[in-house]
């Protein structure tokens, strides 16, 4: 009875928030679209469509840290203000997409040029395209078939995929990444849930530090070092703050309550 009451309260609070936000419900993205980011700073001025960046394609090969710390991509869409000239000089996308770098044995295709011929325009469209691409969708489902499943997000349990060795992520780029000493393994810890009956959160600090390093989260996303120093609510998280910077957008969505609220009662 208590649980039913709790679920009803959460649903009611959720629908009230939606109503307060203008009554429109966010459309749930399709599995291959989950985590996609549309980048549109300068493309349209240049007469080409915006870039639709597929996080899953990159996430299956690299840690978050490589792109968001070592290459310098911001954590929110369009915050980096990437220009074709930056890419052509070997920065941002051009760090790897330079026609020379390799991922395993495969050569990574070249990214932008500041000027391009009609023939080269097809290369631009590899990233600058808002059209649905059946080949990309097919590639996603082929990849998904080999991965441990998850109900939400893009249907992949990325954490488990790494645990079982289905993914081996690159964490250093030669000539780009700073060579650092090994990181002291951070202990996981529990955070008290604010709602009675809701299990406490088990925060996987070890996993997050391996993927992100320290500087991606501290102090920009989480200001407190001491456990419990940052006070936040689910409303703020759903508003894209704290855990919500990644979760819902790229990492598994926050509606998957039990992934975080995992401490046995």
């Amino acid at each position: 009875m208590k649980r039913i009451f709790l679920v009803c309260t959460i649903l009611l609070a959720g629908s009230s928030l939606l109503w307060a936000a203008g009554g429109s419900k966010k459309k749930k993205p399709l599995p291959y679209d989950f985590g996609s980011v549309t980048i549109s700073n300068y493309s349209q001025q240049a007469g080409i469509p915006p870039v639709v960046f597929d996080h899953w394609v990159h996430r299956k090969s690299y840690t978050c840290r490589v792109c968001h710390v070592d290459i310098g991509f911001g954590m929110t869409a369009n915050s980096t203000k990437i220009r074709a000239a930056d890419n052509a000089k070997g920065y941002f996308c051009g760090t790897c997409h330079n026609g020379k770098s390799q991922l395993g044995k495969a050569k990574i295709f070249d990214s932008c040029a500041t000027t391009f011929s009609r023939e080269e325009y097809n290369r631009c469209l590899k990233c600058h395209s808002l059209e649905r691409d059946p080949a990309k969708e097919e590639a996603f489902f082929q990849f998904l078939a080999k991965m441990p499943k998850e109900t939400f997000g893009n249907g992949i349990n990325w954490e488990k995929a790494e645990e079982i060795g289905a993914l081996k992520l690159v964490d250093q780029l030669e000539g780009v990444s700073v060579k650092k000493s090994g990181m002291k393994i951070q202990g996981d810890f529990a955070l008290k849930s604010k709602v009675d009956g809701m299990p406490d959160i088990i925060f996987s600090h070890a996993k997050h530090t391996v993927w992100n390093g320290c500087e991606l989260c501290h102090p920009d996303i989480f200001v407190g070092i001491k456990k419990g120093a940052s006070k936040y609510s689910m409303i703020e998280l759903f508003d894209g703050k704290y855990c919500g910077v990644c979760h819902d957008k790229v990492a598994f969505p926050q509606t998957d309550c039990k992934r975080c609220h995992a401490k046995p009662v």
Partner: peptide, 14 residues
Amino acid sequence: ESLRKVYLKRLQLC
């Protein structure tokens, strides 16, 4: 400009 943008961001993080 490009180099500045990348390295200022990286420096800011550390």
